[in-house]
C-alpha cells in the first residue's frame, strides 16, 4: 500500500513566531543586565533599559570585583562547590552501589525514606540545626554549610547514580568477585569507571546547586570573610542598589562561570537537572 502523505503540510511559521517571542521574554532581561553592566552611573540613570550609547564602562567590572569582595567570595564559593561535588559523589556513589548491587535488606524502605525526606521543607530541621551548629562552631564556617549540602544533595545523587549502576550487567562484578576482589575493589575499579558519566552529571548538578544556594548560606554564614557569592551579592545589591551599572557587573561576574559551563556541557546539565529537579 502506498502511504498517503498527510493532506496538509503544516506551516511551522506560527510556531517560530511564538517561540521567538518567548526567547525575547527569556533572554531579554539578561541582555538588559549585560548592557547595564557596561553603563556609567550617569548613563544608567538617563538610559536604564536601552543599549549603552555613551561608551562602555568596563570600569564597573573592576569596581564590582573590588567592592563586592569577589576575590574572597569566589574563592569561598569554589571551596564550597568543589567540596560539595567531591563529598556528594563519594557519599552517594557508595550508597548507590549498596542500593543497586549489594542486596541491601530494606533497600526499598530506605529509598522511600530518602524520597520523602527530600521533599520535606528545610524549615523543619533548619532551626534546631542552626543551634546545634552554633555549639559545634560550624556557624560562620564553610565546613558547616558543606556538610549540610552533603546531607541534603546526596539522596538526589544517589538516585541518579543508582539508575546508572543498575544498568550495568552483574557479570563484570561477579567475575571480579570470583577473582577475590573485595566489594570496595568492585566499587572503585569496576563500577565507578563504568558509571563516570553519571558521576559527572551528578557533580555538575550539585555543584550548580551549591553555587546558587541561598537559604542555608544566608542562615549559616554571616561574616564577610566566609560569605559565598549569593549571600555576598545579596548584601552588595542592598548596599549599592542605586548604581545599576555596578550591581549588574557584579551579577555578570557571578553568573558568568555558571552560564559558560552550562553552555559547554548543557546536555549533561539538562539531563541531571530535569531528572533531579523532578525526582528530589
Amino acid at each position: 500500500m502506498i502511504r498517503r502523505r498527510s493532506r496538509r503540510v503544516r506551516s511551522l511559521a506560527p510556531n517560530y513566531v511564538i517561540l521567538i517571542l518567548l526567547v525575547v521574554f527569556s533572554l531579554g532581561p539578561l541582555l538588559v543586565l549585560l548592557s547595564n553592566s557596561l553603563k556609567s552611573p550617569g548613563e544608567v540613570g538617563r538610559n536604564p533599559l536601552g543599549l549603552p550609547r555613551e561608551g562602555l564602562a568596563w570600569r564597573n567590572y573592576v569596581e564590582a570585583w573590588r567592592q563586592g569582595d569577589y576575590a574572597v567570595t569566589i574563592r569561598n564559593s569554589l571551596i564550597v562547590s568543589l567540596s560539595t561535588i567531591v563529598g556528594v559523589c563519594l557519599i552517594s556513589g557508595l550508597a548507590a552501589f549498596a542500593l543497586a548491587k549489594l542486596n541491601l535488606p530494606g533497600a526499598d524502605a530506605l529509598t522511600m525514606y530518602f524520597l520523602v525526606g527530600t521533599s520535606l521543607p528545610a524549615q523543619l530541621f533548619l532551626v534546631p540545626l542552626y543551634f546545634i551548629w552554633a555549639r559545634l562552631h560550624l556557624v560562620d564556617n564553610l565546613l558547616g554549610v558543606i556538610i549540610i549540602y552533603w546531607a541534603v544533595y546526596s539522596p538526589f545523587a544517589a538516585f541518579l547514580l543508582r539508575s546508572y549502576m543498575v544498568s550495568i550487567p552483574s557479570d563484570f562484578e561477579d567475575a571480579a568477585r570470583v577473582d577475590g576482589a573485595s566489594e570496595w575493589q568492585v566499587f572503585s575499579r569496576i563500577i565507578v569507571p563504568l558509571t563516570w558519566p553519571g558521576f559527572l552529571t551528578a557533580g555538575l548538578v550539585v555543584g550548580l546547586w551549591a553555587w546558587n544556594e541561598f537559604l542555608f548560606a544566608v542562615t549559616f554564614l554571616h561574616r564577610p570573610e566566609v560569605m559565598t557569592v549569593t549571600t555576598s551579592y545579596y548584601n552588595f545589591a542592598g548596599r549599592y542598589g542605586r548604581d545599576w551599572g555596578l550591581t549588574s557587573a557584579a551579577a555578570i561576574i557571578m553568573i558568568f562561570p555558571v552560564v559558560a559551563l552550562f553552555l559547554a556541557l548543557q546536555r549533561r546539565f539538562i539531563e541531571g537537572l530535569t531528572e533531579g529537579g523532578l525526582k528530589t
Binding site: L19, L22, V23, S26, L27, P29, L30, V32, L33, N36, G45, P48, L49, L208, W211, N212, F214, V229, T230, T231, Y233, Y234, A237, G241, W244, T247, S248, A251, M254, I255, V258, V259, F262, L263, Q266, F269, I270, L273
Partner: peptide, 28 residues
Amino acid sequence: FRTAYFIPYVIASVVNAQIWRCILHPLK
C-alpha cells in the same frame, strides 16, 4: 530555543531578583 529557555533556571535567585528589581523599578 531549548537552551535559551533554560538559561534563567541555572542563574542564582539573587541575580534574577536584582534583574527584575531594575526592570520593574517604579522610577527607572
